[in-house]
Design a protein around this nucleic acid. Structure first.
Lengths: 213, 213
DNA sequence: TCCCAAGTTGAATCCTGGTTCAACTTTCAG
DNA sequence: CTGAAAGTTGAACCAGGATTCAACTTGGGA
């Protein structure tokens, strides 16, 4: 839910979610921006981009309609900010857990398991990321490209350590990425009962034999 | 491209793509309906649901704006018809090829390969199916549920024949489904150079060891 | 304390595009 | 051949909602 988290906000560039050259200058402004971003996450997650309205966002945020335009240039702009933000939050949740994995194969199991957990906590993620395909294709492409690239790097690292077959490549990485997204949809979003650990274990078992050297 | 294909149009229910109780009664009407559906596939595929307009569709179809409402109740209604149609076309392309596979593992290879081919021929499919998540969630859920269910059935059949591990289940099916969708996005839609056969072979090799008894 | 930049406000503007409808044309059953 | 049903037409209507803007408020530095 907390969308604009504390960051060591470098300077007045962007880095916070605001549009180019619209960063808040005071504490009051930062508070308002955060309220708008959080409200937008809820509004977009609930209704989707097109059904959402700026006034819906500002009402939720408890600020006036016009204040929105103090921080964002357009409806598209908040959405873009949100996609970047969700993408970052997800990465920040998964990365440290994965890095603590004992080996390359387990890393993928933990990656999936922590992804499932994340989805349970943030049901908005699918609607927001998926809808970026239509609102801002660049963000969409960027999200999946970097996500899969991270998987690919992990696989190569595992291969270097001799834990994974030497010929792993991009195709394997995309296959794993897709597997994760679908399992997240089915067992993270739709079925909130199943146990993420079990799901991840079963999927990982499938993968393990295929990935071993 | 051909969206409303010949069907042994049973009666005046729906079965063709038109809205409830709006089926054409004459040859002229059927021709117009087909033109509208084909145009809608192109328009939606190109611009997405919200950027598309009814007038854009009717212009492409070469008919007047009002004629649209002779066959569909609303913009949503054509979209729904289109999702059902793409979903059916895809199934009809893949199923016979898969059924001719020598064994359960090869079936999945051929399933992926033929899916990649289909995507190359129908770039609209991703935009249309994906956007149904926002326009008509039921259709969206239905599409993926039935698609994965088909994979699941194949796996179980393979298991019964002893070609696939006996404990295959829904999780494996969703994993494969996700893998296919992502590989389709990356190597069917984005990169139109790569060879579907090779991609499918590599992905299937990953799977094979995990699926064998 | 005073002042100005930063921030807030919400009514008014503007525009897009879905949907309606009444007049007109074509088809085809009897 | 003929009339009613089916189909066609596109101008006009209308709602929703993004964006603008000029007046107003706040807060912190000098």
């Amino acid at each position: 839910m907390a969308v604009a988290r504390d960051r060591s906000a470098t300077n007045a560039s962007d880095e916070d979610g605001a549009s180019e050259g619209k960063s808040p200058r005071t504490a009051r402004g930062r508070k308002t921006l955060r309220a708008i971003l959080d409200a937008a996450a809820v509004e977009f997650g609930e209704k989707g981009f097109h059904e959402s309205s700026i006034s819906g966002i500002t009402t939720r945020a408890g600020v006036a309609l016009g204040s929105f335009y103090t921080y964002f240039d357009s409806k598209d702009a908040v959405f873009r900010a949100l996609v970047r933000d969700m993408s970052t939050q997800l990465r920040d949740h998964v990365t440290p857990l994965v890095q603590a994995a004992p080996d390359g194969i387990a890393a993928e199991r933990i990656g999936l398991e922590s992804f499932l957990e994340f989805v349970r906590e943030h049901k908005e993620i699918y609607r927001i990321i998926d809808e970026s395909e239509f609102v801002d294709y660049e963000s969409y492409r960027h999200h999946y490209t970097t996500t899969v690239e991270r998987i690919h790097q992990r696989l190569k690292a595992g291969a270097a350590r001799g834990e994974i077959r030497a010929d792993v490549g991009e195709i394997h990485a995309w296959a794993i990425g897709g597997m994760n997204v679908f399992l997240g949809l089915r067992f993270g979003l739709w079925d909130r009962e199943s146990n993420p650990r079990e799901v991840a274990a079963i999927a990982n078992d499938l993968l393990a034999r295929g990935l071993r050297p």
